[in-house]
Design a protein around this nucleic acid. Structure first.
Lengths: 199, 199
DNA sequence: TTCAGGTACTGACCGCCGGTCACTTGGCGA
DNA sequence: TCGCCAAGTGACCGGCGGTCAGTACCTGAA
């Protein structure tokens, strides 16, 4: 399976280290064969991201419950994003790198699926936070954007701290996903939850 | 001047349409000469981004005043980011694209400068919002990440809506920077400002 | 006036990579 | 046995970022 070979390869050499030639060889195919199944490298990444996003949404619907506190929800979202393989690095590159190089037709199909997943997630978020219908959408958008920003930051935090000057090591480390995202998510969730109920 | 030629060229062909060969020709230089002044394409972008970030911070320090409401501040930040040339597209690509391909030494120098600018901005934000010292840093980080996410979204919103299916046109348009960022920024600012004062 | 040295500049060239396509292979039904 | 077609192949292409041996020119000393 191509997707599985891609996952393995990304594990080993990182997202930016994947080349289609090497991936084909690894999957036991010729380069041309690979392109029978996937129209471009970015389309492949898009497929992988949809899988990851699906997993994140499914897990969130499973785990988040009405009555959870803002802190609990923020923590759950953080773990969720962080433990789903490939979710963060692909999310960080989704728009600037991946969408920029996918043909229209598969792009639209992917976007529709992602938007649908986003709505599922947002709807569940509205339920568990108990926010009113007018606040549900801005809340979901705000959390989404914050997560997208935190995913960016996380890229630089992945860098090997070996040999970095002290101030840089600290700067990189402080941009890791969890310490960036979780407090912000909590702040946002508390803002919309506190008028109604808390905890 | 190389930076100026780069700005012009980005205006015309977009960030992803710039090639070093064409840029050199446009600046009246040979490719090799260009590389005497800039070690890589991404280093050039990093220089441009530092300029843009500097402008944004300077403007924010000039325009934001204690007593401004959350809505006013959110609006000001939005305009600020949007009207500073190249700020948003470069910000969106800063980590995943630009930082990923710059040599250590210039990267560290740039990061130090950007971190210093970020602190200036955050300090002024703390003053105008009047938040306590314990809340200042998470507030600045949250707004920063949200802006980073919104800058991402804005990339896809830049796409020419000609010939897009209706649902996609709507989806792309709704991701533009202002409608994404401003309500979220307002939500976040209100959350930290309301306990103390408002307006 | 000549020449050595150094600096700014040049552009042909390289390696790499994503993507293509004319061709081969192999299995299956007639 | 043979023809056909789907699946697969890998040499090849174009374009790009980046390099480097060489050139042009100026200056100041002899």
């Amino acid at each position: 399976m191509i997707l599985s070979a891609a996952r393995d390869m990304i594990d080993e050499v990182g997202l930016d280290g994947v080349t289609m030639g090497a991936l084909a060889k690894r999957a036991g195919l010729a380069k041309g064969t690979l392109y029978l199944y996937v129209r471009s490298k970015e389309e492949l990444y898009l497929l992988l991201f949809i899988e990851a996003m699906d997993a994140v949404v499914t897990q969130f619907k499973h785990r988040a419950r009405p009555g959870d506190s803002a802190a609990q929800l923020a923590h759950l979202m953080t773990l969720n994003a962080q433990t789903t393989p490939l979710f963060l690095p692909l999310y960080a590159r989704l728009i600037a790198v991946i969408e920029a190089n996918v043909a229209d037709e598969p792009l639209f199909a992917a976007k529709r699926r992602l938007i649908a997943l986003g709505h599922e997630w947002g709807a569940h978020l509205a339920v568990v936070t108990g926010v009113g219908p007018d606040q549900a959408e801005p809340l979901a958008r705000t959390i989404t954007m914050t997560m997208l920003g935190a995913a960016q930051f996380d890229i630089s935090a992945q860098r090997d701290p070996q040999g970095l000057p002290d101030d840089m090591r600290e700067a990189f480390a402080s941009h890791a996903f969890a310490p960036s995202f979780e407090p912000s998510a909590r702040l946002i969730l508390e803002a919309v939850m506190s008028p109604r109920r808390q905890g």
